[in-house]
């Protein structure tokens, strides 16, 4: 399970403050601790407060890379911000471009642009593509799968290895009115997305979004994660500091025979899940 650690995000107060005060220590501490907790990638999101998003993502990338060589996941809806981050990133370590929809009203070619950016960054650059198009986020199963299929065929058409593609079926907060049908729809869509390519494209989700505003956040996150892993989910943007969640990942992998059981399997998971 490829875990993308979510904490370096300007939406969190301490990160927001660190960005404003150019305090490297907070960022470098989070990079180190999330890596130790089992993160394969560190998500880097400037949030909404910074006026200069391009400069801020570059500062974050440079700050992290001063003390940490963990792969980075550049997180922005704006291609120019991702492009700015890519200028600073050491793509040799692996980098994820997070994220692009299939297309947008304002930009029909956005997926092509992401593929182009990933190709320029080198063979270790991958893309997170959302099952979302110019009509917005689909609510039903079929449209999700259809968009994923278009994303996969676009990648194949462009000669972009589907192993460098992460499909994100978009998790929405479960406590929003009428949204409770969505987790089930996402799982059903995953069942089909895994067969769109051989080997299957990676799938990822922004897990914490599911429990946004709900009580029992950790419990909701971890139960859904186990369910989704059984449908082929092999990556998630998540809170790697949530020990209960990490134990669920380790146990699910073990039950799916992806890790060999040993009595101390929980203890070694974080250091070996890379």
């Amino acid at each position: 399970m490829l875990l993308i650690a979510e904490r370096i995000n300007g939406m969190f107060t301490n990160v927001k403050r660190a960005i404003a005060e150019k305090d490297k220590k907070v960022i470098q501490y989070l990079a180190k601790k999330q890596t130790e907790a089992g993160a394969a990638y560190l998500d880097v999101n400037v949030g909404t407060a910074a006026a200069d998003q391009e400069g801020t993502i570059q500062w974050l990338v440079e700050t992290i890379q001063e003390t940490c060589s963990t792969s980075l996941c550049l997180d922005s809806q704006k291609p120019n911000v991702i492009a700015a981050g890519l200028k600073a990133v050491n793509a040799e370590n692996g980098v994820l471009l997070n994220s692009t929809p299939l297309n947008k009203k304002s930009d029909e070619e956005i997926l092509d642009k992401f593929i182009e950016m990933a190709n320029q960054a080198g063979p270790k650059a991958s893309i997170i593509a959302l099952t979302m198009d110019k009509n917005g986020v689909p609510q039903d199963i079929d449209t999700r799968v259809a968009i994923a299929a278009e994303i996969v065929s676009k990648a194949i058409e462009k000669g972009f290895d589907t192993q460098r593609l992460f499909i994100d079926p978009i998790v929405l907060p479960v406590n929003v009115p009428n949204a409770q049908v969505q987790p089930g729809n996402i799982l059903a869509a995953m069942e089909q997305i895994r067969y769109l390519a051989d080997p299957a494209p990676h799938m990822t989700i922004g897990l914490s979004n599911l429990s946004q505003g709900a009580t029992e956040r950790s419990l909701i996150n971890r139960v859904f994660l186990a369910m989704a892993m059984s449908r082929g989910l092999d990556s998630a943007i998540a809170d790697v500091f949530d020990t209960d969640l990490m134990n669920v990942v380790a146990t699910t992998e073990m039950l799916m025979n992806k890790q060999i059981y040993s009595d101390s399997y929980l203890k070694v998971f974080a250091s070996t899940n890379k």
Partner: peptide
């Protein structure tokens, strides 16, 4: 026993 095999390696590593 592959499970025990893994466990011993963890114990030595500890």
């Amino acid at each position: 026993d592959i499970n025990i095999a893994k466990q011993i390696n963890i114990l030595a590593s500890d």
